[in-house]
């Protein structure tokens, strides 16, 4: 691949983003992050131009770092769970 970003790299980035998003303590942020990552990868599935792929990949990397930091902050200031989270217990 001429873009310099291989398919395996993209896949592992996706997995990493999903795994880290799962760590948000806040229900809303967690659901949003998972949904947003999934939708963004779906949206850019047909991207073929190497430059565009590289750009999106860099954006994903940037967001991975944000998610890691913010999930850690959220973890420090946990709250009681939402009504909806307690429903299925």
């Amino acid at each position: 691949m001429s873009s310099g970003v291989s398919k395996t790299q993209i896949l592992s980035m996706y997995k990493l983003l999903m795994r880290e998003s799962q760590k948000f303590a806040n229900y809303n942020f967690r659901s949003y992050a998972l949904r947003r990552v999934r939708d963004a990868f779906k949206e850019n599935k047909s991207l073929s131009e190497p430059k565009a792929i590289k750009k999106e990949f860099e954006y994903a990397k940037e967001n991975l770092n944000i998610i890691r930091r913010q999930a850690a902050i959220g973890d420090m200031y946990r709250t009681e769970k939402l009504v909806i989270e307690n429903l299925n217990q």
Partner: peptide, 26 residues
């Protein structure tokens, strides 16, 4: 039977801060 924090449905009063925004501010 439900317990826990209420769901937030008052987005016109204020919105929660996006984690990406907080990350830029920190």
């Amino acid at each position: 039977e439900d317990y826990g924090r209420p769901l937030y449905f008052d987005a016109q009063a204020t919105t929660p801060m996006d984690p990406r925004v907080l990350d830029a501010m920190m």
